[in-house]
Design a binder for these strands. Structure first.
Lengths: 197, 197
DNA sequence: CAATTATGCAACATGGTGTTGAATATCTTT
DNA sequence: AAAGATATTCAACACCATGTTGCATAATTG
């Protein structure tokens, strides 16, 4: 029911064509005509599969997202935040070629946010347990800070070649989130200087 | 040399028209024709001033950026990071109507990053002094984390009506950056639990 | 008021869009 | 291997935004 080599081939070359164009320009400036030229596919065929380049990108992202989500579901429930972040980074590395495009200059900034939202429940629960007196409003603010900060770090990691192990990145994010600079410095007295009102 | 009321009027209505359209759609889907219709300006006149909608947006952003930068230059050199962040937030609030559009769903995510980059030198210097043994690579990672995290918080602040005082936002960012959750919790023992390997 | 300059207007070629119907190629199934 | 089903190609189409132009008209400045 999902077979037919022609369809699989067509979709594959269209995806590749879009991704290769996204290394050169933002999707804003990529036309259906260009994608089809690069894929050597007739333009009418493109429209038989996708509405426009954005739709095509969305399909690519959805597949990638599901792949990442599945690799986390494996270790579900037992998942500490650290564990989930490690799984996410591992899965990103496994999809390295694709992520390098999606996270790149002309990629889609929103995608990584969507991925990190997988860990939203665990994050909020963790913050809540640590800062029980914080209001909902403040918790949201913390989540925004940490999730966007984490996204930036992961993006940098991917674009610089993913040399560090996923565990290292997850550990860094946990450390910087939990204790902040004070812990990284390993010098509570000194860092405390900056904390006095 | 910069006078002529006609020019000033034309540019003003074109800017307003684009901004009002950006509340409805991403600039991607905004045409020159639409902008001119809403501004009641001839399309040829648009091209006499701007190359395309992106150019128009860039001009708007540049003016806003300069306005923010100028309001900081006042307290320059003596600027602690906290002071700079406060100035940035104050200036953003003064340009509230405009910022609400630029930071909104269909706005320009990159603009706030550009603004926060004003504080990049001070940030890096501060991290460096606190964590003297950190490598350049790790410092970059921290800066990415904190600047993107800060951007997310400020964006949330703007979009929810800028009720808190700029000083509060700056203080929050400093607190969360410096001591992380451990400090906010005011409970080093408990938070330390999460830091043990 | 006079000279300058900006805007409005209408028309044009260009290029991408999205769709269509018919011809052709490829795949799946028996 | 042949037949039926289905995907792709091809050519053509109307449509619309683009960017530009020459000229008429309106507004501004000094």
């Amino acid at each position: 029911m999902k077979s037919d080599r022609r369809v699989r081939y067509t979709r594959m070359v269209l995806k590749q064509a879009l991704l290769s164009l996204m290394l050169e320009r933002p999707i804003t400036r990529i036309t259906v005509t260009e994608i089809c030229e690069r894929a050597e596919v007739n333009r009418a065929t493109f429209y038989a599969h996708y509405a426009d380049p954005y739709d095509l990108l969305a399909r690519i992202e959805n597949e990638l997202f599901e792949s990442i989500r599945r690799s986390i579901a494996g270790g579900l429930s037992s998942g500490s935040l650290r564990r989930i972040l490690t799984d996410i980074c591992s899965s990103i590395r496994e999809n390295g070629a694709l992520c390098r495009v999606i996270f790149s200059e002309y990629g889609d900034r929103e995608f990584l946010e969507r991925v990190l939202n997988i860990a939203r429940v665990e994050s909020m629960a963790l913050w809540r347990s640590i800062v029980p007196h914080a209001g909902e409003r403040e918790l949201e603010r913390m989540y925004a800070f940490f999730s966007q900060g984490s996204a930036a770090v992961i993006r940098g990691w991917v674009l610089s070649g993913m040399q560090d192990a996923p565990e290292e990145i997850a550990a860094f994010l946990e450390r910087i989130s939990m204790g902040g600079l004070a812990q990284i410095a390993g010098n509570r007295e000194k860092s405390a200087e900056f904390l006095v009102k």
